[in-house]
């Protein structure tokens, strides 16, 4: 299988602190890869580097969108990276709270639309059609995620679990080939986590989107991922399938603890 994302020898220094140290990672087409590790290991920094919020100090990040050539995305602005097909969610929910649920998803469609100022003012046929299309598309995405009953609610009024799902819906609206989920199950109860598990599998299987996720909920990680990468102090200390990771002594020492193994 071809690799959709390749991170090569990535380094990220903040002043004297090296948050990520010669890190390597790859995600194959249709794969679910989990990044785990103790707090402060550099997982979110890694996501920020990949999605362009931070510019890596050195190393390379390559993406291969379907039917397109492999290209480096180092130094690209976040919006360009999203446009090339990488979408993300945030660890601390970052929805547009005073916009409706539907509008949140519509923002995700933004980079796939074209109408400009003139179009907005004069509303020619193309703009009207485009608007109708985006409303319908966004609604379809909400239906898929199971949020259609909240469609006209303000995002801030949604229950916590629904807000997390809305973040995923918004990311899906950008038409990604790789979805980066930063702790999607944080703060969810058992039932919600189970639903999330199903949802992520559904996204992978039906939408053909590869997934890279950070998660602390080990039951979710173990049941979901094809491959797990363990990070500690910015370094890759182990990788393998869930069974291998559970047995790995380094991982047990650094993160999982004796009881889990």
């Amino acid at each position: 299988m071809n690799k959709v994302l390749e991170v090569k020898n990535l380094r990220m220094n903040f002043g004297g602190l090296s948050a990520i140290d010669t890190f390597n990672l790859d995600v194959s087409d249709g794969e679910i890869v989990a990044v785990i590790g103790p707090n402060g290991a550099g997982k979110t920094t890694l996501f920020n580097c990949i999605t362009g919020l931070y510019t890596a100090s050195s190393g390379d990040i390559l993406i291969s969108p379907p039917d397109k050539k492999t290209k480096s995305i180092i130094g690209f602005k976040p919006n360009i990276i999203t446009e090339s097909g990488l979408a993300r969610t945030f660890q601390n929910i970052r929805l547009f709270s005073n916009m409706t649920v539907l509008e949140n998803v519509m923002i995700g469609r933004h980079c796939r639309l074209n109408s400009g100022i003139i179009g907005a003012i004069f509303r020619p046929k193309t703009t009207v059609n485009e608007e109708e299309q985006v409303v319908q598309d966004s609604y379809d995405i909400l239906e898929k995620i199971g949020l259609e009953k909240y469609v006209n609610e303000f995002a801030k009024n949604l229950p916590y679990g629904a807000q997390r799902r809305l973040e995923i819906a918004r990311a899906l609206a950008t038409d990604p080939f790789l979805l980066l989920l930063d702790e999607p199950a944080a703060g969810m109860n058992m039932q919600e986590t189970k639903e999330l598990d199903d949802l992520i599998l559904k996204i992978r299987d039906e939408e053909k989107i590869s997934i890279l996720l950070i998660e602390h909920d080990m039951s979710l990680v173990m049941s979901l991922s094809d491959r797990i990468i363990v990070m500690d102090y910015g370094k890759n200390i182990a990788q393998g399938n869930p069974a291998e990771i559970k047995r790995n002594t380094d991982v047990i020492k650094a993160y999982l603890g004796e009881t889990f193994a």
């Binding site: 919020l53 919006n79 979408a87 547009f96 709270s97 916009m99 918004r170």
Partner: peptide, 16 residues
């Protein structure tokens, strides 16, 4: 409006 609500998320959602 997205820019007003959250600048970082706005850019991460593909808005210039």
């Amino acid at each position: 409006i997205a820019l007003r609500e959250d600048e970082t998320a706005c850019q991460a959602m593909g808005i210039d």
